[in-house]
């Protein structure tokens, strides 16, 4: 459904000289440095997939999404979305996609959501019976009724995001691009948005590409994760394989009775220590959890312990570090 090959985007950045003299020089001589925001990115996304797109700030996530949506023109490479090249046929492409930018509203600031929906229906030429059906449906599942007639600028972040989602889906797009959809939201709001996305992905078969900093988003929604760093794709596979990529690690949290020195067996590493609280990371290929616990319980008196999967944050941090 989405096919991207050899995709690159370079930005020319003007080098500014500072001060009055510098500013005058800037007027006459423009020096550019070229920055590669996206470098040779290749991937394919099938209909109905929900793919997480991760990477640190400035890695090229948003730039990729902006090229997919037709906002930016790639420097090199090709994009095909359902057979359409977005930057050449922007308007055609717009009809089949929905876009939500977490930090940028698609709604009209001074208008209540319901009027924004009507305007969007006109812009997307959604037949009025269908528009009404879709709006009613979203009011129902996103629970928009209470603030449907309040100007958007007066809504809370969570309310606004629910409206954004409805707005992006009014014209029944086949693909939904989400750029940081849960940014700044509280746990409850995040959860309701995830449930909604899961529903439209599973029931309505909307293909989703999602960038986020919140790995819970990815873990609860996506089976596949792409990781980009410095403009290059460094991982494109399942979440499980992302976790497995650096051996099978788990974390053991310990509460000691006494503040004493701890001797760890082979395959373990002390991650942090806060007085009697200790966090140990261990490789399950070398030492299994019961073995490790028996070992430690024999040497120290323990008050409490718990074993966790290594959080995906850690995994990704590792990937970034090894790439550097």
């Amino acid at each position: 459904m989405i096919k991207v090959s050899g995709l690159e985007k370079e930005f020319k950045i003007m080098t500014h000289k500072s001060g009055m003299v510098g500013a005058t020089k800037n007027l006459f001589s423009r020096k550019h440095t070229t920055v590669k925001a996206v470098a040779d990115v290749n991937f394919e996304i099938q209909r109905g997939e929900c793919v997480g797109y991760l990477g640190p700030n400035g890695a090229g996530k948003s730039t990729t999404i902006k090229m997919l949506t037709g906002i930016l023109v790639p420097t090199r490479g090709s994009i095909s979305v359902n057979g359409i090249t977005p930057f050449e046929n922007r308007k055609e492409n717009a009809k089949q996609i929905g876009v939500v930018f977490g930090q940028r509203t698609q709604l009209w600031w001074d208008l209540p959501p319901i009027e924004s929906f009507d305007l969007l229906g006109k812009i997307y030429k959604v037949p009025s019976s269908k528009l009404k059906k879709n709006i009613d449906n979203f009011i129902d599942i996103l629970d928009l009724e209470k603030f449907l007639h309040t100007p958007v600028r007066k809504l809370s972040l969570g309310q606004k995001m629910r409206c954004e989602l409805a707005a992006a889906l009014l014209h029944d797009p086949e693909i939904l691009y989400l750029d940081e959809p849960t940014i700044g939201l509280d746990v409850m709001a995040k959860d309701s948005i995830r449930q909604f996305l899961k529903k439209i992905n599973e029931e309505d078969k909307v293909t989703i590409l999602l960038t986020t900093h919140d790995l819970d988003d990815v873990e609860s929604l996506c089976k596949r994760v792409m990781v980009i760093d410095n403009g290059k794709l460094i991982h494109d596979d399942s979440i499980a394989s992302l976790k497995g990529r650096f051996g099978n690690y788990k974390n053991l949290e310990l509460d000691l009775e006494n503040d004493e020195e701890v001797h760890l067996p082979v395959g373990c590493e002390l991650v942090r220590r806060d007085g009697k609280k200790i966090m140990v990371e261990f490789n399950t290929d070398i030492i299994k959890a019961p073995e490790l616990i028996t070992n430690l319980a024999g040497k120290h008196s323990l008050i409490d312990l718990s074993v966790h999967e290594r959080p995906i944050e850690e995994v990704i941090k590792r990937i970034y570090q090894t790439e550097v």
Binding site: K66, V99, R104, I123, K125
Partner: peptide
Amino acid sequence: TGDFDRYLIRPISPLVH
């Protein structure tokens, strides 16, 4: 501000918008 983005993801001419 980058708000111009939103006029490029609509199926009408940004000018009309």
